[in-house]
Structures are given as C-alpha cells and as structure tokens.
Design a protein around this nucleic acid. Structure first.
Lengths: 129, 129
DNA sequence: TGTTTGTTCTATAAAATATAGAACAGTTCT
DNA sequence: AGAACTGTTCTATATTTTATAGAACAAACA
C-alpha cells in the first residue's frame, strides 16, 4: 500500500496517515483481520518517528476501526464489530456538516454535492489489488 | 445570531467561529452585503480575544466568503462573486473525501450518507429569521 | 472632532506536533 | 530457551499553533 505524506501540509502527519489507512480499508486494500505494520517498521518506511505512527494507530483505535493488541500488533477489525458500535454516525455527520455548509455558501448545489459524493464512493469502492 | 463556542473542544475557537459564520450565511441569517460585527465588538460579545476573531475573519476571507475592507469592516460577499472564483470545489471535495471514507469503513452505505446529506442541506436551507 | 475601524507590533503562556533515545515486559518465532 | 520483535512508557527537546494581552497607528466614520 502506497502512503504519501506531506510534511509541509497544514494537516498533521499522524492525521494524514490515519486518513490514508482509512482509505486503504475503504478500498479493500486493507481487509478485516489484516495486520498493520509495526509502528517501528511503518515509521522507518515512511521516514517519520515511531511515536507519530503510534499516535495514528491510537486515533484509529479510538475511532473503533482497528484493534491494538498490547505487545503484539494492530489489526483491522471485522466490519461487523465496527458497525455494531454506536456513535459512529454522529461523529461523522458532525464532521460532514461544516463541509456541506461551506459547499452551499460557495454556490454548490445539492446535485453537485451528491454527484461528487457518489464519485468519491465509487472511487473508494473499486477494490485495488 | 447565536454563536456557541466550546473552549474545551479540540476544534480551535477561531475554526468554530468560522464554521458558525459559514452556517449563518448558509441559512440566510447573514445575507450578502451584510456587515459582520467589528472584531472588537464580536470578541467582547463572545468573551474571546480580538485577535482570535480577526483570525477567523481572515480565514473566511481566504475562503473567499467575506471581504475585509481595511479600516472599515467585514462584509459578506455577494453569492455571484463567491461562486465565480475557482478552486472552491476542489478544496471542499478534498475535505469531503476522508469523511466519506470513514463513513464507509464504519458501515454506513451510500443511501444513509445521501439521506444525511439531504437532511443537512434541508436543515441549512431553512432561512432562520 | 472624537470614536471606531482593521492593522501591526511586541509579549507571554499553554497546548499540539514531531522527533529522539532509552528501558521495560510481553509476544512471537526459530 | 534464546533472540528478535512488539507496544508501552518515560524523559527530553524543538517547533508550531493557539490564545490572550496591550499598545500604537492611520484610515474611516459619525
């Protein structure tokens, strides 16, 4: 899986990493049960600090997307386990709201937003590799 | 217009303010041509620092949503002026992508996301006062 | 003519971000 | 059993971001 980090971005490295791992799961590249690289291995691979990767993994765990087994490793949780938990929709829709508000203010209409939504979903749903 | 800031939030105060002003414009509460309060007045009203409000206004200006007239004040830009500018869609859809990816990973399907999208739009489109 | 405006500057403090290195104890593998 | 690897925890440092505070300025405004 190719991960591209931009150190110059205003988005923190650990957030970029978190988002790309989520995308990796969404696309099916990282499947349920899959082990993630160790924090040290991935840090070395990406050229960042171990603690930065660790922070990303814990963010993913907080979101309920992966399980961190102490002294062992991190694993993508089964889809059913993830979806069983409550609070996901609230968190995500709360993040969605300001984006939609801005879209409307800059003149995008419901059709355009829906079209892009579908485009993103189709793009992610294409299982790569 | 009621603005509620949460100092304890992980979202910076100036970002919260920016988002709520955008919502205010989306709902029609703040209409094109409307003057925003002076940075001092709003800061005093909200109980935050002048520079925090100033940063929010400049964020809104950077997004192309308001005009800051030096030594005079800040004004909501006309809708046509805003939508004429390029780059809006790219910026917004880039912000949309990680949210959608997480939604899919958590088990939300296209229908549910679309339903919520429409719900948010309808909620914002209701002109309040 | 005062008042208000955004602007600019210095200053300070706390929190967030990122890196670095070390040590620990449990896990995994040979 | 032993070696390698794992996440965890700790100290440390540096930079950036966030937020506040106060002062001064010149243009705009009433």
């Amino acid at each position: 899986m190719i991960i591209q980090l931009e150190p110059q971005s205003d988005i923190p490295i650990y957030t970029q990493l978190t988002n790309q791992i989520i995308e990796g799961i969404a696309t099916g590249f990282l499947q349920p049960g899959h082990s993630l690289p160790s924090v040290r291995a991935l840090a070395a691979d990406l050229g960042v600090n171990m603690h930065t990767v660790n922070k990303s993994y814990h963010e993913l765990e907080k979101k309920g997307i992966i399980s961190i087994i102490p002294k062992s490793g991190a694993v993508v949780r089964p889809r059913k386990e993830i979806s069983q938990e409550a609070g996901h929709a609230e968190r995500i829709f709360a993040a969605l709201r300001p984006v939609i508000a801005e879209a409307l203010v800059v003149g995008l209409d419901q059709q355009q937003i829906e079209k892009q939504l579908i485009s993103i979903i189709h793009d992610l749903k294409e299982i790569k590799s």
